[in-house]
């Protein structure tokens, strides 16, 4: 019982193979085995969302998922969102609007909000707050988080606009 099992998954684009006990939580696997400590643990009750990562593009709480359940999937952690060379729009938003105080919740909040923006690129304030239900922050009072997400939504829209222009210019040039 409980003997180690081979699992493999793509984490932030890199194939990872390991032997783990079935009871290993995904969050512990990511933090302790793969050293991806950006994913945090903020509670015992599956409520805070500090541990939010993506499995096949869907936001999930990695404290309430077994590593073996993620076998064969693609996992994205906050480290895979962007880096200092190229920050994700949500990361820039948090930077510009100061969307954090202690920063403990921030990786999970950014993961939850980047997922929201993928499905709903122009969320209202109440949609942002509703999307934050699974990501608790005990410092900011959420005001600056909302601003950070709105900032990210604006810059994603601008990026899209630019891309369209470049594309249409490209098409024009080819004629």
């Amino acid at each position: 019982m409980g003997s180690k099992m081979e699992i493999s998954m793509k984490v932030n684009g890199i194939e990872k193979k390991s032997y783990t006990e079935p009871r290993m939580l995904l969050v512990h696997y990511l933090r302790d085995e793969l050293d991806l400590t950006g994913t945090h643990i903020g509670c015992d009750t599956s409520q805070c969302g500090a541990c939010t990562v993506y499995i096949d593009g869907k936001s999930v709480k990695s404290c309430t998922t077994l590593a073996v359940q993620a076998d064969g999937t693609e996992v994205t952690t906050v480290e895979g969102l962007g880096d200092m060379e190229k920050l994700h729009a949500i990361q820039r938003g948090f930077w510009e609007e100061h969307g954090l105080q202690c920063g403990y919740c921030t990786p999970g909040v950014m993961m939850a909000m980047a997922a929201l923006l993928k499905e709903n690129p122009d969320p209202s304030e109440s949609e942002i707050r509703e999307g934050m239900k699974g990501a608790i922050c005990r410092c900011t009072g959420y005001q600056f988080i909302v601003k950070a997400v709105q900032h990210a939504a604006r810059s994603l829209a601008e990026e899209n606009e630019k891309e369209k222009l470049v594309q249409s210019a490209g098409e024009g040039g080819a004629k």
């Binding site: 999930v60 939850a112 699974g134």
Partner: peptide, 9 residues
């Protein structure tokens, strides 16, 4: 139900 992460699972 719950929150988006819960609804995803």
């Amino acid at each position: 139900i719950g929150d988006q992460q819960v609804r995803n699972r």
